[in-house]
Design a protein around this nucleic acid. Structure first.
Length: 351
DNA sequence: AAATCGGGGGG
DNA sequence: CCCCCAGATTT
């Protein structure tokens, strides 16, 4: 039994009950509500999730509603949140829950773990928070807290390290309030034992037993492996309008980056005005005018798009694309934030 | 084990 | 600029 970690349980729970934020999914932790919140919160800050969560639960309040929803509606509800495969997997899992588990989310860790989009962390989070099972849920917050409390200098991105922290936690998990303990560890990491800048150790209920605090090594921890530089991709984006000011869009492939979302016509590389004209001629239409737009860039985790842009007016639409009004685009089509600069152009041109 | 998959808030 | 965020899946 891990005596060093055992002593964090009581003070952490006391602190959590005194200081926990009031969050929508905490106030009524049904399995479905916890599940949706955990998927949205993957690699995503609480503040960013809040408005998406409220809207999602309002529109799709049950597993059945989620299972039966149109894909376009799902993507629109997720628009701007990122990591869009999350919502596809969420629905895949909802369909399995309807078909195999009678519409009720399973309570067992391994069964949860088998569902699409539910990995080690999320299975532990749902099992403990929604079902009260004494199962660890180790996310970035928890790894940071444990690295500092134990003054561990091992790489927290290493899967073996993650597993060992999880095993240590398993031994000390309270059986009567597992959900509170799961959330307390994460809450401490988010509010006190923070990642950027100086942790608020004077407020921390664990400072008395935190090895990093005792040795003043908090800022050196946790240790993470170095990340690789991102690749640069040049693109040319077309804001193309037909005589009725309808906008050309296309749906991205259903795998890969931004799968299934809608985008403006675009080509690889930084095209000159002449090459831009050629692009449209090859599609069987000669542009009435081509106006160069301000360049834009968008940074993803592993790639950066450097985008040239042209406003193109066409004498007729072409079948290659879907032609939509500005209102239709905003109301029904999920467009990734990478194209925000060109959506803005649209607003300026069309009012 | 490494790569892929978004977007934004804060130092 | 860089960091990291209630990670999962694929290769």
């Amino acid at each position: 039994m891990n005596d060093q970690l055992k002593q964090i349980v009581a003070p952490l729970l006391e602190w959590y009950r005194r200081c926990a934020r009031k969050l929508s999914w905490r106030s009524d932790p049904t399995p479905y509500r916890v599940w949706v919140s955990e998927i949205m919160l993957q690699q995503t800050r609480v503040e960013a999730v809040k408005p998406y969560y409220e809207r999602f639960m309002e529109q799709l309040p049950t597993v059945q509603a989620l299972a039966e929803a149109e894909e376009e509606k799902l993507l629109k509800l997720w628009e701007g949140l990122g990591y869009y495969s999350r919502v596809r997997n969420l629905q895949k899992a909802a369909k399995v829950v309807m078909k195999i588990y009678g519409g009720e989310l399973p309570a067992d860790f391994e069964t949860l773990r088998s569902l699409p989009g539910i990995g080690e962390y999320t299975a532990g989070a749902i099992a403990s928070i929604a079902f009260g099972k004494p199962v660890p849920a180790v996310d970035g917050n928890v790894l940071r807290v444990l690295s500092r409390v134990t003054e561990s200098r091992r790489d927290i991105l290493n899967s073996k390290v993650k597993k060992e922290f999880s095993e240590q936690l398993r031994e000390i998990y309270p059986t009567d309030c597992a959900g509170d303990f799961t959330q307390a560890l994460m809450e401490l990491g988010a509010m006190v034992c923070v990642p950027n800048g100086v942790p608020l150790c004077e407020q921390c209920p664990l400072s008395h037993c935190c090895q990093a605090f005792l040795h003043q090594t908090m800022l050196e921890l946790p240790v993470k492996a170095e990340k690789k530089p991102r690749k640069l991709k040049e693109k040319t984006v077309f804001v193309a309008l037909d005589p009725q000011n309808r906008i050309a869009v296309q749906k991205r492939p259903d795998t890969g980056l931004l799968a299934g979302l809608w985008e403006f016509p675009n080509a690889e590389g930084a095209l000159t005005r002449e090459q831009a004209a050629e692009y449209w001629k090859n599609l069987g239409v000669c542009p009435g005018s081509i106006q160069k737009l301000r360049a834009a860039k968008h940074i993803f985790t592993h790639v950066e798009w450097k985008m040239s842009g042209y406003l193109v007016r066409l004498p007729q639409s072409v079948d290659q694309f879907v032609w939509v009004t500005k209102e239709e685009l905003h109301g029904q089509y999920a467009v990734p934030n990478a194209y925000k600069a060109f959506l803005k152009v649209l607003a300026e041109v069309l009012g």
